[in-house]
Nucleic acid binder design. Structure first.
Lengths: 109, 109
DNA sequence: GAAATCAATCGTAATATTGCGATTGATGGG
DNA sequence: CCCATCAATCGCAATATTACGATTGATTTC
């Protein structure tokens, strides 16, 4: 118990869920927005910006990196993070498709 | 510990996170897709369709209802669930805005 | 009214997530 | 080489999520 029963659902359903989950945290949204704004970032800046501990932010960055949304390259002592535009656009497409299905005229109850 | 520190983030960031979280589960995605497809549904059908226990599906329906994405009206012994098109379109707009910010030409690292 | 049916709720167990202090590993400057 | 700095990782605690059996409450049917 306690684990999501992924075998009951389609590959697409599981993938969309994972994509949503990757972004479904205010800290990760803040990180993404920050990266979008200044178009490049080192982790230290994010620690100062967000107010969370360094270990916590590093963990959120790891999650975003694991789904490919961001990438980090070592830049001297610090690490430069930025959004991967290809993956970002894939996400946009998937989300757009998901919400586009709606035929909003019919409302049965 | 263990709790998300919502006070560190903007109202918008927390709201987007909650919206994503509401959908970030394959069962809830399956429910939404099913509701979109047949445009109306009773809970029993979903139990047969998804393979999860009745209590579990009822719980997922409750979560979707709590964010306003679906609404249920009592129809005899069963309950008729359907998507609220207004909230659905709000979600679409928020998600579209979130992903639209990208200026995908620049990639720093 | 009794039995049947459907969905919500309760209680509980298992697992996942969030957050942080402390440590580690790598790099640059002196 | 030694020290400072930055980010990743480890280990832990607190909380949240997921799932289900059992029960409850409402409604329909007989």
């Amino acid at each position: 118990m306690g684990t999501t029963k992924t075998d009951l659902f389609t590959k697409e359903q599981n993938e969309i869920a994972l994509m949503m989950k990757a972004i479904a945290h205010p800290a990760r949204i803040a990180i993404l927005q920050e990266l979008l704004k200044i178009n490049a970032c080192v982790c230290g800046d994010l620690v100062n910006e967000l107010g969370l501990a360094q270990a916590t932010i590093s963990q959120h960055l790891k999650e975003l990196k694991s789904v490919g949304l961001i990438q980090g390259t070592i830049e001297g002592t610090s690490v430069c993070y930025c959004i991967d535009p290809v993956v970002w656009n894939e996400y946009r497409q998937v989300f757009t498709d998901f919400f586009m299905v709606m035929d909003n005229t019919n409302k049965c109850c």
